[in-house]
């Protein structure tokens, strides 16, 4: 049974010369990486090394910052605030979203406020947070929490709301009660949406980490970013930017792997219909 996705990708492969057909994705990623490095190097040469350091200079700076402990320490500080805020956001948003979706009157009451809060720029709360919590760890965690909580909450809620009415009716016909239907149909049905929310929340959480470290006490990777930027240490500055990119890639990749575990059944189901 040939399905759409396979046919499409084999058509795309047919356009390539025979030798390249077998090339795996990671090889192509390396090619793109090399092209980006080349572009970076060219920009550094043309724009001037004071503004954009060369890849070599950045690599040397990275080695130096790792050796003297600056980068590992800052990364540890940033990850600590990120994972605390993000973990709290998930711990609050998933149960609350499930409750709002499972218990309709609660969802109907709260969703206006959730949407209002989601539309407000969270930066607007930072002065307030500083007044209440100061500039330390708690303030940073709160800023990340506020950033990450909304996408997780909204995705969980809509995931439960959009659970398949036909499956719910089927379960009801077997005699299942509300609680059993929630556990057996709604919860597994919304899992994919919850993980998508976690992925969105992780992205916003990382951005919030930088914002928090720039606006409150200058620490962690965000703090290094401010210090190096303000003092024109562009090679060190680039190391920090790359560190952020690496963390973002790792976190999203981890969640994507969790998603593809679920694809075993769900993705195929969508493709088949």
């Amino acid at each position: 049974m040939p399905d759409g996705a396979t046919r499409q990708s084999s058509a795309a492969r047919a356009l390539l010369p025979a030798g390249l057909k077998a090339a795996p994705v990671w090889l192509w990623r390396l090619v793109v990486l090399a092209a980006l490095l080349l572009l970076w190097w060219a920009v550094a040469v043309f724009v001037g090394r004071n503004f954009v350091p060369t890849p070599q200079a950045t690599a040397l700076a990275a080695l130096r910052l790792i050796e003297n402990g600056t980068l590992p320490n800052a990364t540890a500080q940033s990850l600590a605030v990120f994972f605390t805020g993000y973990g709290l956001a998930a711990a609050v948003a998933i149960p609350l979203g499930l409750l709002m979706g499972g218990f309709r009157p609660l969802g109907a009451t709260l969703d206006v406020f959730v949407n209002a809060l989601a539309a407000t720029p969270r930066v607007a709360f930072i002065p307030l947070i500083i007044v209440f919590l100061g500039l330390g760890f708690e303030a940073k965690v709160t800023i990340i929490f506020l950033g990450a909580v909304m996408p997780i909450l909204i995705n969980t809620y809509t995931g439960v709301l959009s659970s398949d009415g036909e499956l719910v009716e089927m379960a009801r016909s077997t005699g299942a009660g509300d609680l059993a239907i929630f556990r057996k149909i709604m919860l597994p049905g919304s899992l994919r949406s919850i993980v998508a929310g976690l992925r969105l929340g992780a992205g916003i959480g990382l951005i919030s980490t930088v914002v928090a470290e720039l606006y409150t006490s200058v620490r962690g990777l965000g703090g290094l970013l401010a210090t190096y930027g303000n003092t024109f240490q562009m090679d060190n500055y680039f190391v920090v930017v790359l560190a952020f990119a690496a963390i973002g890639a790792l976190v999203t990749q981890g969640l994507r792997m969790a998603e593809s575990r679920m694809d075993r059944w769900q993705y195929q189901e969508e493709r088949a219909s």
Binding site: E166, E169, K184, P188, L191, W265, E269
Partner: peptide, 8 residues
């Protein structure tokens, strides 16, 4: 009519 199997 629609089979209504749980995909998971």
């Amino acid at each position: 009519q629609s089979f209504r199997l749980l995909p998971w």
